[in-house]
Amino acid sequence: MIIQPTSLAALAWAGAASGSAAESWRIGTVLSARPLGINPDGMMVLQIGALAVETEAPKGQLPSQFQVRVLTLGAQPMLEVISPQTPEPATQLAMRERLPQQNGYAPLLATLDALSQRPALRQLPAYLRPALAMLEHGVRTPAEITRGEGLEEAIKRSGLFLESQLAEPQLDMAGLSQEDWKGALLRLASLLDDYLPTRRPAPASTASETPPPLQQRGLQAQPRAMLPLALLDDDVDALLSRLHGEVHAALARVEVAQLEATTTSAWMIEIPLQGENGHDILQVQVQQHGEADSGSSWTFGFAIDLPALGPIHGELQLRGLRLSVRLWAERIDTVHRLEQQFGTLRQALSASGLTLDQLSCQQGMPQSTGQHSAILLRTTA
């Protein structure tokens, strides 16, 4: 059962989150809840702890009193209804554990850049240097992802499908560990745990700042991260300590995306890219609508923030052989540059047999359209 809050409920939480009413709201906290009734607008009013929120009336009937566990905070918190007779599902437990640990790839990639430029890196143990090189090898080039087969390979090796590939017969284990992003993260994390045994990585964010899972946030163009000036010296050990935490945070990020993929027909994939004088992150969302037997359609979204172009979003909707393409760019000069490529794109699509229904580019960023961007309660019933 999914219960989504109205904007009023989200605003009520946002206003209360800084006050004493929200002091008891922490990740993992169990709160008492009860339905107060239906208001004249047909919305259900719930009291959760010391707060009252409005939600869409659920399909099933809620008990007169129940408990919820806080999974995420922020302007749109997510809570799980606890069934006393049913143990917490393993996926929900794993999600709750990993959300406070996860972080984006940008800080990790910035630290990798800094390490690669340090001569003292050659003094690291021989077993650690190949693991760093393997992770860098997992970063794709723009030339690779601008080809269909290259993008397919980048998605396949993004870490999201590692375990399913491990289950395949006649698997090349050595090749997979070298090519898969999560495999490279796991190897480096294990070696850094041994190299820095007394330094445990801290969570990527505090409980009050824990963001929701990727699907709930929707596509986000992620800029490059800047390292603190204090780390831009020759202190390789300080950079490795920072890398230690960032590798574990990136692993949690991949695992959050994997856990989400078990409950929805959408996949959120992040692909690190080798850019000019640094690394960039391509975020891709693929979603299937309908059943394959009944003529399903697909939505392919992407977001990227390039230093030369700024933030860019795109959405491609494919229904049979009919395609609609919508682009957004924050900078007006980027809009003009993209529109100059429309003629070439139309020719390429026509040659591939697709019918182009729409091709547009506008200035500004789109509103998030994630179906799960406003989840308030996720029940176990």
Rank of each mutant, 00 (worst) to 15 (best):
L185V: 05
L186Y: 08
L186T: 11
R187G: 02
L188V: 13
L188S: 13
L188A: 13
L188I: 14
L188W: 12
A189F: 01
A189K: 12
S190V: 05
S190T: 12
S190I: 02
S190Y: 05
L191W: 06
L191I: 12
L191H: 11
L192F: 03
L192Y: 02
L192G: 10
D193Q: 09
D194H: 08
D194Q: 14
D194M: 07
D194T: 09
D194C: 06
Y195E: 14
Y195F: 15
Y195S: 12
Y195K: 07
L196E: 01
L196W: 00
P197H: 01
T198D: 11
T198N: 05
T198C: 03
T198V: 09
R200M: 02
R200Y: 04
P201L: 03
A202P: 05
S205C: 14
S205E: 12
T206L: 13
T206F: 07
T206H: 13
A207W: 10
A207C: 05
S208V: 11
S208M: 09
S208P: 15
E209N: 14
E209Y: 10
E209T: 10
T210H: 04
T210R: 08
T210E: 01
T210Y: 01
T210V: 07
P211R: 03
P212Q: 15
P212M: 09
P213F: 08
P213K: 04
L214F: 02
L214T: 06
Q215P: 03
Q216H: 05
R217Y: 01
R217D: 00
R217Q: 11
G218S: 09
G218W: 06
L219Y: 02
L219K: 03
Q220S: 14
Q220G: 08
Q220I: 15
A221M: 03
A221I: 04
